[in-house]
Design a protein around this nucleic acid. Structure first.
Length: 723
DNA sequence: GACCACTGGTTTTTT
DNA sequence: ACCAGTGGTC
């Protein structure tokens, strides 16, 4: 017990041993958040305040859930496997599986990932003859998800114009289609679970009584529905411990509401019983200069709960800043620095290159590749999202649930078996008429097309019979072979890698069986197959094959959240890129989120931080002239060491053995101004001329003002001062 | 029905 | 620059 609390600082200790009441922990970056969470659970259990059974711990990612489980297991001698520790989606899934009947779902309900959802919406629009130009499927998906995340069903959705009215109708159609097929999307898992608990009093009471302590990780990322779900579960007197950092809220764009933190504080923490808002401000990760920079940046945000990180680790090195001539020049600089670091003994995995958007990785990868430095890019296509894997899973899904139209359409003609768009149109019409699934409607199809579809149906039936009593891995293997997938990829030129992935799928099935201890059994009873498919939908990510040993780590700033590295490079610090122009155009809120993103990026670094920008960058195939990010100016000069002096307008780096990124031919001067030149405008501020056209009185130039956006200005009227 | 050329749209991402 | 999705042709 005393071991448990040893080495905690005062605030951590306070948080861990908080008396049974609601609490909000404002946990700064690197302040030992996960440690506090897990120790709190261990402390509650080992002091007998709660049984493992009565704890509910919620995270956002499977990785976080796994880590929490593992660390908890190391702290207390209990079986953590049966505990309710998981992601919002995972826990809701668990609840819905246990009470599928009450939730109005088939026992074998499947989960649509975003790609499946998009396909379903597209199909719906086609069937209903809706113009997908006017109602873009992606936008419609977002519309549906946003409503579900607000807890709003189609029946309750408000529409004040015809356009929205139509979208609400489509939302309703989508709901119907999902119900017909017996599938749920990600948001549906949560909403369905919420509604189940709300409607079903005995169930609600049961879970409200059961869970005495609810712990939430990354609380700043919760959306409205998730917060409502937590409130509902805590309705029976359970105590909520919310842990989060409002300064690291970077998912507003997908529905996260930082406001939940303030609301939680207001609703649950206004007691006089004790200090139940606790700030963890001591940082154990970064050196002082790095923290000072992070603090300096974030203090420019208005809407904060307030927090100031400190460390007793000493100032450490200054932050290294580099202004490159071009994106290629920037990459050369970064990679040359990395070479030296590695030469000096830094472990490659401890070096991270961060960027705002994934497209930026290309140049960096090219340079790494040229210099022969191993690297790993995160954020690519995930294993369970690969085409060949989704095909194989679609066959498996059809075995479990023939009504799954998404799965049906994915493989009905893959490998090709002569079933074209025409036949499928007929089939869909028939299905629509009889209000049945495509699979069922297939029998009614006649003629040549009917034969081809009939053959497909027989194939699926045969597969089902043949695999009925096989263990999961063999079942997967059988399907891959007999469906024709394997043969198809064997003949395809680029198919080798896909075949390897399919083999990997068989391995994944075997591992899954070992880990989960699921017994054989087929489709029907929600046995191994259904749980494996659920696993594939809910954990499409973490299966990052090859954790890149000895490789430099490349990822977006978003992907870096929660990670830490000895050395961090933040690249592309230019107005319009970081902060991103789309975010800036959303106004103050958008800019503040970008600033939090910068804060997250900086606080990833333990010992050394580099920040860099480029004067020109290839974007969408065109050279863009860039203004350094405003965030660079927000870092106090005293913390920086500039690796190139601004005075030399052509950075020394390019001058020495540069070669790369030759300066673009200077465009003819227009009215004394030329492309690439920095100018100042009374209203828009600092900018760079990007293009020009016309001459004399007609002369206009396009200027990138970064935050203020891109503008065409007539030289006759606009007052532009060369800088 | 299969294959190739063209067009448009490109932040961030988990489940 | 690059991908995906579509429309044309064989």
């Amino acid at each position: 017990m005393s071991d448990l609390l040893a080495n905690l600082n005062t605030q951590q200790h306070q948080a861990v041993t908080l008396p049974p009441m609601h609490g909000l922990i404002l946990a700064g970056a690197g302040s030992g958040k996960t440690r506090v969470l897990t120790t709190r659970i261990a402390w509650l259990i080992s002091t007998g305040q709660v049984r493992p059974h009565g704890v509910l711990a919620v995270t956002f990612t499977n990785k976080a859930a796994k880590e929490m489980t593992a660390r908890l297991a190391a702290l207390v001698p209990i079986n953590v496997r049966g505990m309710w520790i998981g992601t919002f989606h995972g826990l809701c899934n668990r609840l819905l599986r246990a009470h599928y009947r009450e939730a109005g779902l088939p026992q074998t309900f499947q989960i649509l990932d975003s790609a499946d959802q998009l396909a379903m919406v597209k199909r719906l629009l086609k069937n209903l003859n809706v113009d997908d130009e006017k109602y873009p499927p992606r936008e419609l998906c977002h519309f549906i998800n946003a409503h579900k995340e607000q807890g709003v069903r189609a029946a309750q959705a408000e529409a004040y114009d015809n356009y929205t009215q139509k979208r609400v109708e489509l939302y309703a159609e989508y709901e119907n289609q999902c119900n017909r097929e017996g599938v749920v999307d990600f948001a549906e898992l949560l909403l369905r679970c919420y509604e189940l608990l709300q409607r079903n009093e005995p169930l609600r009471t049961h879970y409200q009584q059961r869970f005495r302590h609810i712990l939430v990780d990354e609380f700043q990322d919760t959306n409205r529905l998730q917060y409502a779900w937590l409130q509902l579960l805590a309705g029976g007197g359970a105590k909520i411990l919310a842990v989060g950092d409002d300064d690291q809220s970077i998912y507003r764009f997908r529905g996260a509401e930082v406001g939940n933190m303030r609301e939680f504080e207001r609703d649950y923490c206004q007691t006089s019983a004790g200090p139940n808002v606790i700030r963890l401000e001591q940082n154990y990760r970064s050196h002082g200069n790095i923290l000072a920079a992070a603090n300096a940046i974030i203090k420019n945000n208005r809407e904060r709960l307030g927090k100031n990180l400190w460390t007793d680790a000493g100032d450490g090195e200054p932050i290294r800043a580099f202004e490159a001539y071009s994106d290629i020049d920037e990459a050369r600089f970064v990679i040359d620095e990395i070479r030296e670091l590695i030469r000096d003994g830094v472990v490659p995995t401890q070096v991270a290159i961060l960027y705002r958007s994934n497209a930026q990785s290309r140049v960096l990868e090219h340079e790494l590749f040229t210099k022969g430095i191993p690297y790993k890019v995160y954020g690519g296509l995930r294993f369970f999202e690969r085409q060949e894997i989704k095909h194989a899973l679609a066959y498996l899904r059809l075995l479990g649930n023939p009504d799954d139209d998404t799965a049906f359409l994915r493989v009905v003609n893959f490998p090709t078996r002569g079933i074209g768009a025409r036949s499928l149109e007929n089939l869909q019409a028939a299905a629509h008429q009889t209000n049945s699934s495509l699979y069922n409607a297939a029998a009614s199809l006649s003629g040549k097309a009917g034969q081809a579809v009939g053959a497909f149906i027989r194939l699926v039936e045969t597969l089902r019979q043949e695999t009925q009593n096989l263990p999961l891995p063999e079942m997967v293997e059988h399907i891959i072979e007999k469906s024709g997938l394997a043969q198809h990829y064997r003949t395809e030129k680029e198919g080798q890698e896909r075949l390897e992935n399919l083999d990997e799928l068989i391995n994944a099935a075997a591992t899954f069986v070992d880990d989960e201890g699921v017994i054989g059994g087929t489709a029907g009873e929600g046995g191994a197959l259904v749980s494996f498919l659920t696993h594939a939908s809910l954990e499409s990510g973490e299966h990052q094959a090859g954790e890149g040993q000895e490789a430099v780590q490349l990822m977006s700033v978003h992907a870096a959240k929660g990670l830490e590295f000895d050395v961090v490079f933040i690249t592309g610090l230019e107005q319009g890129l970081f902060p991103h122009e789309n975010a800036v155009s959303e106004g103050k809120e958008g800019l503040e989120e970008e600033r939090r993103l910068m804060y997250v990026a900086i606080t990833r670094a333990r010992r050394r931080l580099y920040v860099s920008c480029a004067q020109t960058r290839m974007l969408h195939g065109q050279t863009r002239y860039c203004v350094p990010s405003g965030f660079l100016d927000e870092i106090p000069e005293g913390l920086l060491r500039k690796l190139n002096k601004k005075a030399e307008s052509v950075p020394a780096y390019t001058a020495y053995g540069g070669g790369y990124g030759a300066r673009p031919a200077a465009e003819p001067a227009v009215g004394g101004l030329r492309v690439g030149q920095s100018v100042e405008h009374a209203k828009f501020g600092l900018g760079v001329i990007v293009a020009s056209e016309g001459r004399g009185a007609d002369a206009r130039v396009q200027v990138n003002f970064g935050g203020a956006g891109m503008k065409w200005l007539a030289l006759e009227y606009a007052k532009l001062t060369p800088v």
